[in-house]
Protein backbone atom coordinates (compact mmCIF):
# COMPACT_ATOMS: atom_id res chain seq x y z
CA UNK A 1 0.00 0.00 0.00
CA UNK A 2 1.56 3.27 -1.03
CA UNK A 3 0.68 6.35 1.03
CA UNK A 4 -2.10 8.37 -0.53
CA UNK A 5 -3.21 11.95 -0.05
CA UNK A 6 -5.09 11.28 3.20
CA UNK A 7 -1.95 10.07 4.93
CA UNK A 8 -0.06 13.21 4.06
CA UNK A 9 -2.93 15.47 5.09
CA UNK A 10 -3.34 13.72 8.44
CA UNK A 11 0.40 13.89 9.07
CA UNK A 12 0.50 17.58 8.25
CA UNK A 13 -2.52 18.25 10.46
CA UNK A 14 -0.91 16.40 13.38
CA UNK A 15 2.27 18.40 12.85
CA UNK A 16 0.23 21.61 12.78
CA UNK A 17 -1.57 20.60 15.98
CA UNK A 18 1.74 19.91 17.71
CA UNK A 19 3.02 23.35 16.73
CA UNK A 20 -0.24 24.86 17.97
CA UNK A 21 0.15 23.04 21.28
CA UNK A 22 3.66 24.42 21.59
CA UNK A 23 2.51 27.97 20.92
CA UNK A 24 -0.14 27.59 23.60
CA UNK A 25 1.83 25.97 26.40
CA UNK A 26 5.39 27.24 26.14
CA UNK A 27 6.63 30.29 28.02
CA UNK A 28 9.83 31.01 26.15
CA UNK A 29 9.38 33.39 23.22
CA UNK A 30 12.04 31.67 21.14
CA UNK A 31 10.43 28.26 21.55
CA UNK A 32 7.04 29.76 20.68
CA UNK A 33 8.65 31.08 17.52
CA UNK A 34 10.06 27.64 16.68
CA UNK A 35 6.59 26.16 17.08
CA UNK A 36 5.24 28.79 14.68
CA UNK A 37 7.83 27.62 12.17
CA UNK A 38 6.64 24.07 12.74
CA UNK A 39 3.10 25.13 11.84
CA UNK A 40 4.36 26.79 8.65
CA UNK A 41 6.23 23.65 7.64
CA UNK A 42 3.13 21.56 8.26
CA UNK A 43 1.17 23.78 5.87
CA UNK A 44 3.88 23.47 3.23
CA UNK A 45 3.73 19.70 3.54
CA UNK A 46 0.00 19.78 2.84
CA UNK A 47 0.52 22.09 -0.14
CA UNK A 48 3.18 19.87 -1.70
CA UNK A 49 1.07 16.75 -1.17
CA UNK A 50 -2.00 18.34 -2.80
CA UNK A 51 0.14 19.53 -5.65
CA UNK A 52 1.64 16.10 -6.22
CA UNK A 53 -1.59 14.17 -6.15
CA UNK A 54 -3.54 16.64 -8.30
CA UNK A 55 -0.75 17.00 -10.84
CA UNK A 56 -0.49 20.77 -10.61
CA UNK A 57 2.42 23.09 -9.96
CA UNK A 58 0.73 25.91 -8.07
CA UNK A 59 1.14 24.35 -4.63
CA UNK A 60 4.84 23.88 -5.21
CA UNK A 61 5.25 27.49 -6.30
CA UNK A 62 3.34 28.63 -3.23
CA UNK A 63 5.73 26.66 -1.04
CA UNK A 64 8.48 28.58 -2.78
CA UNK A 65 6.94 31.86 -1.66
CA UNK A 66 6.20 30.54 1.82
CA UNK A 67 9.88 29.68 2.27
CA UNK A 68 10.89 33.19 1.24
CA UNK A 69 8.38 34.90 3.49
CA UNK A 70 9.27 32.60 6.40
CA UNK A 71 12.93 33.52 6.09
CA UNK A 72 12.11 37.24 6.16
CA UNK A 73 9.69 36.70 9.05
CA UNK A 74 12.25 34.84 11.12
CA UNK A 75 14.83 37.58 10.60
CA UNK A 76 12.44 40.35 11.67
CA UNK A 77 10.97 38.35 14.55
CA UNK A 78 14.33 37.46 16.01
CA UNK A 79 15.44 41.09 15.73
CA UNK A 80 12.33 42.08 17.67
CA UNK A 81 13.07 39.45 20.31
CA UNK A 82 16.64 40.72 20.66
CA UNK A 83 15.40 44.31 20.98
CA UNK A 84 12.89 43.15 23.59
CA UNK A 85 15.62 41.35 25.51
CA UNK A 86 17.76 44.48 25.49
CA UNK A 87 14.95 46.47 27.07
CA UNK A 88 13.55 43.95 29.52
CA UNK A 89 16.32 41.39 30.08
CA UNK A 90 13.89 38.51 29.66
CA UNK A 91 12.20 36.52 26.90
CA UNK A 92 9.66 34.74 29.09
CA UNK A 93 6.12 35.71 28.12
CA UNK A 94 4.98 35.54 31.74
CA UNK A 95 7.22 38.46 32.60
CA UNK A 96 6.38 40.58 29.54
CA UNK A 97 3.26 42.02 31.13
CA UNK A 98 3.85 45.75 30.96
CA UNK A 99 0.78 46.40 28.83
CA UNK A 100 -1.43 44.29 31.09
CA UNK A 101 -0.60 46.05 34.35
Amino acid sequence: MTPDLNHYIVLSAVLFALGFLGVLVRKNTLVIYMCLELMLVASTLALVAFSRFNDTMDGNVFVFFILTVAAAEVAVGLAIIVALFRKRQTVQVGELNQLRD
Binding site: T2, D4, L5, N6, I9, V48, S51, R52, F53, D55, T56, M57, N60
Partner: peptide, 12 residues
Amino acid sequence: LPATPAPAQAAG
Protein backbone atom coordinates in the same frame (compact mmCIF):
# COMPACT_ATOMS: atom_id res chain seq x y z
CA LEU B 1 -10.50 12.64 -0.01
CA PRO B 2 -10.71 10.52 -3.15
CA ALA B 3 -7.68 8.26 -3.03
CA THR B 4 -6.61 8.87 -6.57
CA PRO B 5 -3.25 7.39 -7.40
CA ALA B 6 -0.54 9.91 -7.95
CA PRO B 7 0.31 10.55 -11.57
CA ALA B 8 3.43 8.78 -12.65
CA GLN B 9 5.08 11.91 -13.96
CA ALA B 10 5.33 14.43 -11.15
CA ALA B 11 4.95 18.05 -12.25
CA GLY B 12 7.12 19.25 -9.40
